[in-house]
Amino acid sequence: MHELSIATNIVSEVEAAARAHNAAAVSSVTLAIGRLCGVVPGALQFGFEIVREGSLLAQAELVIEEEPVVVWCPEGNHTVELSDMAFRCPEHGCPTPEILSGKGMEILRFEISNFAGTSDMKEEVTQ
């Protein structure tokens, strides 16, 4: 269950960013995870529900967008999306060792539902 450890990262990263935006509550977090990153979406959801307790994300839903594996076909000189984990070009049948995307795990965005107190929220913290 390394998803628990990954969920912990997500909650702490989003919570820090949310605080910088003067948030009191976050209602959703959207994540893009590559099919090759070795994370099971269901397990991550489960881990997230445990870890979010007591944080600004306590009521937040986790939206997971799965990112396909995209490789380079050396025979046809084109990029191609793989539908499974066989690293072969579906058109040319050649091996495709070069991976262009599908390994990453990125927090895309989050939604703030409530802001803290009445203090102004001028500070723009974008990373």
């Binding site: 990262n9 989003v14 935006h21 994540l31 703030i112």
Partner: peptide, 18 residues
């Protein structure tokens, strides 16, 4: 100010580890 606001974070989850 209670309108929801979306923050584009674009941050690698494994940042700390990496």
């Amino acid at each position: 100010m209670t309108t929801p606001r979306v923050v584009e974070l674009r941050k690698n989850v494994m940042n700390r580890h990496d």
